[in-house]
Design a protein around this nucleic acid. Structure first.
Lengths: 234, 234
DNA sequence: TTGGCGATTTGCGCTGGCGCAAACTCATGA
DNA sequence: TCATGAGTTTGCGCCAGCGCAAATCGCCAA
């Protein structure tokens, strides 16, 4: 652990307001892991032995339904916690978490949580604040699914990805991990066919550039118009 | 407050594992309120000055979208907390909470939360456990919206209502508060027309009995078959 | 360089469920 | 008792988007 960059970790929002000495005590009890692309960080229904902080990479969180459908719940970016089932009174993970690229994570044993919560109130408060955001996000998703058409939902999804994993290139803002049409479909509750058609149409209009497992947003502003439902359809 | 039935309150799951003396200290700082039918308990975007425990009645939590749509996030039953924005690091309420019938609630000032969290770890843990369930529920909703057809979603919604607010009658299980077709539509992301058609069809098949703002489920088991997508359509 | 496979594109037909509109039915208050 | 209006039912037409299938593209490995 000594090899990790403490100052970088200290800047993460989960550790905001945590004293340096406390930070050391927290991080000191973690082990660091590498997860190869497409390997699971944790799996649905499994005993929640650990919780994690993503340091590098991107992780896709997917829920499988009994009837074989897969729905992507969210993508996790560096600095975010995941697998905090124990902090929410659950003993198993509610979903699969799969590395979208090679990742580096910190892992703590779940049984440490009560101690952390009691001894490091800032850390605990920050964690629950993140939970609040996720609950918010989930409700937003429900509302989008309930009130928006597919095109708007896909546009919203792309903008969300741009915001949390966008990397500037000379062509536009690239989503910085491999993402297929199927993945986007699973985020928005549609089919890869429809997503493909939409991306093709957007590409014709110069809104995006896309290729195999790769999407670059050229004109975020116009995409936002579509997302908000205020765009005249061609 | 002295007039409220402490032993009844003590049995609520939020207070599980809380010592009697602590319970008194918690409840002693609440004030009890009556909310008339159709009146708000709290409102979206408003400063989250208080959090609440529903003692009697039913509360509908609704989010309004900028474009005028309304989506019902969930119904709250007696014994549940609501408006706990502060515990999740937010300063405003994320939705409107409206009394579906005359209600009785306990209200605490939001600024008490950090103290409660620090001094009554069981209470805090129970609260976050409830938050965990809600996050779970929200994700389930997303998955339902993404993978199921309207008929299944409405069936699921009815079963959820039966579970949390069902009252046995000689005809079947009655949903114990006034609920309109429009309300059900807002829970499931469809229109009141479609809900009306579904309920009529179900009534023809003897699955439910329904009337003005009133639904009774006669055969929960067959409804479950529809919800699970394993029912031959007539 | 050549296969082979996974990802993507595209055409076509069909249908679930929405939008609109009109009729109907109660419950409530005057 | 009757008028009123909210809640509900129902008919009809339409279209967004799904399901299926086939063709194409591009990356990687041999």
């Amino acid at each position: 652990m000594a090899s990790l960059d403490r100052s970088l970790i200290a800047g993460l929002s989960v550790f905001e307001g945590v004293a340096a000495a406390d930070l050391d005590r927290i991080v000191g009890q973690a082990r660091s892991l590498r997860i190869a692309k497409d390997q699971p960080v944790f799996e649905q229904e499994q005993e929640a032995h650990s919780f994690f902080l993503l340091l590098d990479g991107h992780v896709r969180v997917v829920k499988s339904t009994p009837d074989g459908h897969e729905v992507t719940v969210r993508y996790i970016s560096p600095g975010e916690l995941m697998g905090i089932a124990h902090a929410l009174g659950r003993t198993t993970y509610p979903a699969n978490a799969i590395a979208a690229v090679d990742c580096v994570v910190l892992a703590w044993a779940s049984h440490l949580w009560p101690t952390f919560a009691a001894n490091f109130p800032s850390f605990s408060a920050n964690t629950y604040k993140a939970v609040g955001s996720r609950l918010q996000d989930a409700h937003t998703r429900v509302i989008e699914m309930a009130t928006e058409q597919v095109e708007q939902r896909v546009a919203h999804a792309m903008l969300k990805l741009v915001k949390q994993a966008g990397r500037k290139t000379e062509e536009g803002i690239l989503i910085d991990f491999p993402i297929s049409r199927q993945d986007i479909a699973e985020m928005t509750g549609t089919t890869l066919h429809t997503v493909s058609r939409l991306l093709s149409a957007w590409e014709d209009q110069g809104l995006v550039k896309s290729g195999r497992q790769r999407v670059t947003v050229v004109e975020p502003h116009r995409l936002l118009l579509i997302a908000e439902g205020r765009a005249e359809k061609s």
